[in-house]
Design a protein around this nucleic acid. Structure first.
Length: 875
RNA sequence: GGGCGCUUAGCUCAGUUGGUUUAGAGCACCUCGUUUACACCGAGGGGGUCGGGGGUUCGAAUCCCUCAGCGCCCACCA
């Protein structure tokens, strides 16, 4: 068969991906086979493929493809996430450019824009995954805002609410006074900034005493509802329980004690403003304090700010300083550097603000997530170090704020009616009305109902993903969920261990009383060579699709997998893709070589071929065992590296050179057939990593039995192998290597035949024919040194080889060399002897260790004797 | 501030419950080679004493303590 000299990855990749798709090879339906399921971590619907996705999805594809070859019913469910904050921000920005302000249009109008945007830019990432070779069951593609997925989320909310796990409560949130919206914690940047620490005087009621406090925000005194000191603080004990007077407004506030207050900081006395500081808020709850909100939406002071009403917080800070000073209530002011939170979007200083939010109670429902990961390992983490991170989070878990003040997402299924925040939970208005009227004395109409404006946190849909993609929330007993759930592996980054992984485990046990997956493989972060995170701003992220086009998907996949142990960051550099490409080139050329060998049916199999093939078969199984083991432990980089060395070194550099017919000769049928079978096994092992190339070569090989694609072929079965064969060949390699060295040293061409002899030995020399062929040796037999006038000798294991010499022999140099080796061995012998002289060692160490040391003595002794003899002979 | 983790060849990393010679790999590097699969190649080679110090042990890269440096996550101290 004619195989083109250059591998064309562009055409080949297109050809095989279409073939796989047309033949539905990635399709999965429940059947009698064992399922192997992975749900994709859904990327943002409008996102584009970046290096992180490439790493993550290559890993998933490797796992899925191998499972498929292992005969499992492999099902990889693809999909995308609506990513409420990110997508909404993009849509708002886009509308702004068109001159449309989000607050000027209705919710429905905004959502229409958002859907237009999603349809225009959405789903591109899935097409890019196909280019990478991902073997997803594309018929199962899901989007978190699809009708069925939407309903699942709503139903989950209802179920949790029915169990009293969801409640409405107050919470301190980050308020962006410029954008007049809440921002999530992730969108706040804390930056060290210069500011001032003001020391203020608070008079004590009915006394001449006063308390001094320190604050960076004197304008918030209007919201003060207490002063707080540490109960251990001797200076202030007498004041606890008394009342202080807030400067300027003259309000009376209690003086309380709490260990939260740091004795060392400032004056050791704290003013408490529950409405405008998270810690003060917590103190307020604990001590049942009032909460006075002093700000308007735009962070100007409201009526509680008295004569400052309507003025901006920073203006007030300046003006109040003057007023306090004139009233002799400002003791002093010092420079102070502290962290100020600024909104990522507007850069305005974020104002902590109290607001009504929806929460999910976490303490009870997290219990199975703790037991089944940390105690039972029903869910395993790779690497396991992330268990401690997971543990720490779960043990300090707080209720989950699931509401977001956005429009793009799953609208909270809560309908308010009447006053006082009375509400009813329902899938839609009609159902809400029916439910409401069923329990109510008065008859309500749809106009009386108002749905909550907020949407649910994106993660509130993501955490259901492994269940909802199989419709297991709405139909908990359907065929699909019963078959595919729990899934097997999850591949994701450690950055979303809390956001996503932990919550999926929680929801799994909550909704199905079963884990969502058995194994979690954590990838690292893709960084550049300088360890910088890849980002758009830095421009250090290569264009993923360009890489695939330039190097080929297989090469990129190999490049990514070469140095990406679980949990380790991947320092990506294009040279990795080049290494991958070199490997594809190597494999391609190996196939060309083998394909080019013509068969002579009359020729019998030479001994050298038989030896080589026998060895490689054993070596293959030896490596396969390692590969399987490493797969089981998710050591994917190690799997690739052992395959890489198996193919490049053992198969190409050794076996093919052993089998290669002499110039003008043909190969015997038996050898060729056996070789093809081994080649095919190699391809199978590599297929998960390099699906396109291996599929192409598989069909190019002259095997008439190949009728089906490699993708759905079976993983090589591990056969028994002879460890001695593997070990002996290592000795053979060493011998050949020594001969090559010798040639190089003596400047003897590799084409010139040599005679090689070895001293009689109780164990027989293996692979003689191989040594002869590869090292171009004429005679290779036992002999005694004194049969020759002059020899050059070398030791390998227990064998001493020598090559007869005729001329050009530098005796002194040779003696020098041998003496060096002798010296080394003598010192080594001494160290082992010392070890064995140590009674503690001999008495305490296990027998096998001591025996090994004894064997070392015997071996080294032999070597030394032989070396001394050689030196003697030469002198 | 709290928590977790890391430090082994120039680079990226292995090193499984402490024990087979003088600690491994890939890449990079150096030398030689235009051999009829592959220069996207072949053959050969150099390079680390395992961050510093201390301890446990017959024996430590591996366990413990300590110091130093680095990274990540969480909180965000008036």
């Amino acid at each position: 068969m004619q195989v083109p000299p250059k591998y064309n990855h562009i055409d080949t990749e297109k050809k095989w991906y279409s073939f796989w798709m047309e033949n539905n090879l990635f399709k999965s339906l429940p059947n009698e086979k064992e399922p192997f399921t992975i749900v994709i971590p859904p990327p943002n619907v409008t996102g584009l493929l970046h290096m992180g996705h490439m790493l993550n999805n290559t890993l998933q594809d490797i796992l899925v493809r191998r499972a498929r070859m292992l005969g499992k019913n492999a099902c990889w469910v693809p999909g995308t996430d609506h990513a409420s904050i990110a997508t909404e921000a993009k849509v708002v920005e886009n509308l702004k450019q068109k001159g449309i302000n989000k607050s000027d249009i209705s919710r429905d109008e905004f959502l229409k824009h958002a859907w237009d945007w999603t349809e225009k830019y959405g789903g591109g990432i899935l097409e890019q995954l196909k280019k990478l070779g991902c073997s997803c069951d594309w018929d199962r593609t899901k989007f978190t805002l699809d009708d069925d997925m939407y309903e699942s989320v709503i139903e989950a909310f209802e179920k949790l609410h029915d169990k009293d796990l969801i409640y409405r409560g107050f919470r301190m949130i980050n308020w962006d006074p410029e954008a007049k919206t809440t921002v999530s914690d992730e969108e706040v940047n804390y930056i060290e900034e210069d500011s001032s620490l003001f020391y203020l005087k608070y008079l004590i009621e009915n006394s001449n005493n006063e308390l001094e406090i320190a604050t960076t925000r004197p304008e918030t005194i209007f919201g003060d509802t207490a002063l707080c000191v540490n109960p251990k603080d001797e200076r202030y004990k007498q004041f606890i329980g008394k009342y202080a007077i807030v400067p300027i407004c003259g309000r009376k506030i209690p003086i309380i004690a709490d260990s939260y207050v740091d004795l060392e900081f400032g004056t050791g006395c704290l003013k408490v403003t529950p409405a405008h500081d998270i810690n003060d808020y917590n103190l307020g709850i604990k001590h049942n304090l009032d909460s006075i909100d002093i700000f308007n939406e735009n962070a100007t002071l409201n009526i509680n700010g008295l004569h400052y009403e309507g003025k901006d917080r920073f203006v007030v800070r300046k003006e109040i300083e003057v007023e306090l000073k004139s009233n002799n209530l400002l003791v002093r002011k010092e420079n102070y550097i502290h962290n100020v939170g600024r909104s990522e979007r507007t850069n305005s200083v974020v104002e902590p603000r109290l607001s009504k939010q929806w929460f999910l109670k976490m303490d009870d429902i997290t219990k199975p997530a703790i037991e089944n990961v940390l105690e039972n390992e029903n869910v395993k983490f790779f690497p396991s170090k992330f268990k401690s991170t997971y543990k720490y989070w779960l043990e300090n878990i707080k209720d989950w704020n699931i509401s977001r003040q956005l429009s793009w997402g799953h609208q909270i299924p809560v309908f308010y009616y009447g006053h006082d925040g009375d509400y009813i939970v329902a899938k839609n208005k009609t159902e809400a009305l029916t439910k409401l009227n069923a329990k109510s004395k008065i008859l309500y109409t749809e106009d009386d109902l108002n749905q909550d404006n907020d949407v649910l946190d994106t993660w509130f849909s993501s955490w259901l993903w492994p269940i909802s993609v199989f419709d297991g929330i709405r139909n908990p007993d359907n065929k699909e969920i019963n078959y595919y759930y729990p899934t097997q592996d999850l591949v994701t980054g450690p950055d979303i261990i809390f956001f996503w992984v932990a919550r999926m485990i929680i929801s799994g046990y909550e909704f199905r009383d079963e884990k969502p997956f058995s194994n979690v493989y954590f990838t690292g972060i893709v960084r550049d060579k300088l360890r910088r995170k890849m980002s758009k701003q830095l421009g250090n992220s290569p264009d993923a699709i360009k890489l695939i086009e330039e190097y080929g998907a297989d090469s990129v996949r190999v490049g990514l997998m070469l140095s990406s142990a679980a949990g380790n960051d991947l320092l990506f550099d294009e040279s990795l893709c080049q290494q991958g490409k070199n490997f594809t080139n190597k494999l391609w050329n190996a196939s060309r070589l083998v394909n080019g060998w013509e068969i002579d049916v009359n020729k019998s199999q030479p001994k050298v071929n038989q030896l080589g093939l026998e060895w490689y078969n054993d070596k293959f199984n030896y490596t396969l065992e390692l590969i399987n083991k490493n797969f089981d432990n998710y050591r994917i980089s190690d799997v690739l590296m052992s395959s890489y060395k198996l193919i490049w070194d053992d198969f190409c550099s050794w076996l093919l050179e052993i089998i290669k017919p002499d110039y003008g000769e043909k190969i015997d049928l038996k050898s060729k057939n056996e070789l093809i079978i081994l080649f095919e096994k190699n391809l199978k092992v590599l297929h998960p990593f390099m699906p396109f190339l291996t599929e192409e070569i598989f069909h190019n090989l002259p095997d008439v039995n190949v009728t089906s694609p490699l993708t759905t072929s079976s993983w090589p079965k591990l056969e028994n192998y002879n460890q001695n064969t593997v070990d002996n060949f290592e000795i053979t390699k060493e011998i050949i290597s020594q001969i090559r060295n010798y040639r190089k040293e003596k400047n003897i061409s590799f084409k010139t035949s040599l005679d090689l002899y070895y001293l009689p030995n109780k164990s027989s020399l293996k692979n003689i024919e191989i040594i002869q062929k590869i090292a171009t040796i004429n005679n290779l037999e036992e002999s005694m040194k004194n049969n020759f006038a002059m020899v050059n000798s070398f030791l390998i294991k227990n064998f001493e080889f020598f090559i007869p010499l005729e001329e050009g022999f530098d005796k002194d140099a040779e003696i020098e060399k041998l003496k060096k080796e002798l010296d080394y061995n003598e010192r080594f012998l001494k160290s082992v002897q010392n070890k064995l002289k140590n009674k503690d060692f001999v008495n305490n160490a296990p027998d096998n260790i001591v025996d090994t040391e004894k064997q070392k003595i015997i071996d080294t002794d032999l070597k030394i004797k032989s070396l001394m003899k050689s030196i003697n002979d030469l002198s």
